[in-house]
Design a protein around this nucleic acid. Structure first.
Lengths: 373, 373
DNA sequence: GTGAAAGCGCTAACAT
DNA sequence: ATGTTAGCGCTTTCAC
């Protein structure tokens, strides 16, 4: 309803046409300056348009732009489960990169269900997203994705069959070498390895790194010191019981993830042994609990946020056709030294939780508004 | 480029017009059946359209629809940090509800920065999202949000000043009562409370619940048994040291979160005491580590996913104008009984991690494709 | 360097 | 019950 005094659209947002009219130029010109087109415009008219846009508080309608340009500045993230431990940090990395480049991300949980993944792809296609990042997906090849959605895509942290193009994965072989190197450097000669289950890339690569590094130190590879777990605490516990009951037990244990490392701690305690004094221990992943369990776990950090932003960066390159294809990227983590390996002496406090650091800082600066009551 | 044999748009997606032509009806009719309009259409033509759409593999262009209807079927989620512990499960709940109703969610991390939140709101407005959910935000009132974006909004898990309209928050007072009730029911008379820092709703409400329940059991409220922590492990550790050194120490401790409860475990161990035999312990939150630390923590579950889907449900109601306003919703969690309180006897295994359950099931069913090598 | 005009794919008046 | 048509807000040829 136009109001009686001629001022229409009081609640409506201002459109490009409004700005153009106010600046006394055509829609086309207004668009050229406000959409950052590289089309030439006199500095004078440019300023007129900019000022009018400012005055009217103009915000481009990305839906309209998207319809016209077939570019939505939006990418889809198909994750298996946002509750899975590495997914939040990976998506954090992705979002940070996207946001810096004025892109947004739409997340869909597929729960390791190929049918859900297919449906997710179709839904994203309806929204005309510019590209897709598949996080921890393992049921599809690049070709399968291409068949379902005609947009660029990237895989991040594939758990299986990782060395494909268009994928960003952790360098687990390197990470395992870091762990073993650290223990060997501390003088350990019998270093056991509690590995993950068969079929996982992480299992294969961490074993390879373990063997690489033993060889580098001229330490023998003893198969009785390698036990397979299933990633969970309980399996690390059982594996460690087995190892510690050996005729000549290991003096150090490298567990292929922090969950199993925690199991090792409990098994050692159950056997009346101290970590690190009687058995040194290194885990893998640098999970959020690893800094506040007791002893705090020395571990290899999984470079989740880096994988995320590298993936986002690669995807945007693909979208902008700066490259036609992405070779597999291996991302390295580093060793995080804490108590469980025996390298650190002296006083030690429990680490604060990672996700809340910013909140705490903000709070300490006195910005926190407590309720009146 | 049309190909020579007359088949154009081989790669282009089919539009509504294509379907209409194929079905021999007008665009309007095709739209009416395919957009699920309640406008009357003969069953016969409906079937014609549906069949044509099926045959042409028609997928509506949500961008075009959005431009026309001013409804994008997309909502914005402003979260403080996706790495913060409750945010993934809350967003999971939100996404699950949204997805069931064919909505999508765009996440923006604001990192407890009011400026970032303001910018996030502006960015979402440009995308013409249908509504906003603010997760753990505490810097804005409803009015402030309304001033920035002319769309419905809901707050979830506000950490401060929670009893406002348009918000969905945990019923911490009830949760604290559950914890104390459990300990009192086990026969404990001196139940200490390690609370959170001042200024938080959770601190105020959990204290109130603690007092409520003591009163219900005719137990005296002893202020020397209430100590303030800062939510982190270290503070629970210090607080417990203090409590256990008391002239007449408590026989049970209720910690206002699981992080501090873990600190209590370490303090007890340091003092040569066993949990639960010498001190019973109940935490709060049911964090993912609570099931696999030792002893596993009895705790009150934070109803994150429920809060998420209730928030999403409320927002969609607001969007569809089924309601004009949302009263504050209090969501209850329940007690999760594990080892630390002493109520459970006998054998016990470390719990598997929550986020991976589906993956594991899927894997066990033999769907996991291991690489050839 | 600037403007006029077409049109992206869809829905919703309005006509029939 | 169905069709015709206008137009959402933007970008982009194509004239000038």
């Amino acid at each position: 309803m136009p109001s009686s005094d001629g001022k229409e659209r009081e609640t409506m947002s201002t459109s490009l046409a409004d700005v153009a009219k106010a600046a006394g130029v055509s829609n086309a010109t207004a668009s050229r300056v406000l959409a950052n087109s590289d089309y030439p415009v006199t500095e004078e008219t440019r300023q007129k348009v900019l000022k009018a846009a400012e005055a009217l508080d103009y915000r481009p309608n990305l839906i309209a732009r998207g319809l016209r340009t077939e570019q939505t500045a939006c990418v889809g993230l198909i994750v298996e489960n946002i509750l899975s431990p590495f997914i939040p940090p990976i998506t954090r990395g992705i979002h940070d990169y996207l946001r810096q480049h004025d892109y947004s991300g739409i997340i869909i949980n597929a729960d390791w269900d190929p049918v859900a993944e297919t449906k997710a792809m179709a839904d994203l296609a309806r929204r005309h997203i510019d590209g897709v990042i598949l996080v921890e997906s393992y049921t599809r090849s690049s070709d399968e994705v291409a068949r379902l959605i005609d947009k660029p895509h990237i895989f991040v942290h594939r758990l299986f069959n990782s060395l494909n193009p268009y994928s960003v994965v952790p360098d687990d072989r390197h990470g395992a070498r870091l762990a073993v190197k650290h223990l060997a450097g501390l003088g350990h000669q019998r270093i056991a390895f509690i590995n993950g289950p068969a079929g996982w890339d992480a299992t294969i690569n961490r074993l390879a790194g373990y063997q690489d590094e033993l060889a580098a130190w001229n330490l023998p590879f003893d198969p009785t010191l390698v036990i397979r777990g299933d990633w969970e605490v309980q399996s690390g516990y059982s594996a460690a019981q087995q190892l510690l009951a050996l005729q000549s037990p290991p003096t150090a244990i490298f567990a292929a993830n922090d969950l199993m490392a925690l199991g090792v701690v409990y098994a050692a305690q159950g056997a009346g042994l101290r970590v690190p004094e009687d058995v040194a221990l290194v885990g893998y992943d640098n999970r959020d609990f690893s800094g506040f369990v007791r002893p705090a776990l020395t571990t290899v950090r999984m470079p989740c946020e880096e994988m995320g932003w590298i993936a986002a960066e690669s995807l945007l390159r693909l979208i902008n056709q700066e490259v036609a294809m992405i070779e597999p990227v291996l991302v390295k983590g580093e060793l995080v030294t804490r108590q469980s390996c025996g390298a650190i002496q002296g006083e030690w406090q429990f680490e604060p939780e990672q996700g809340s650091i910013i909140r705490r800082q903000y709070q300490e600066e006195g910005n926190l508004t407590a309720p009146a009551a």
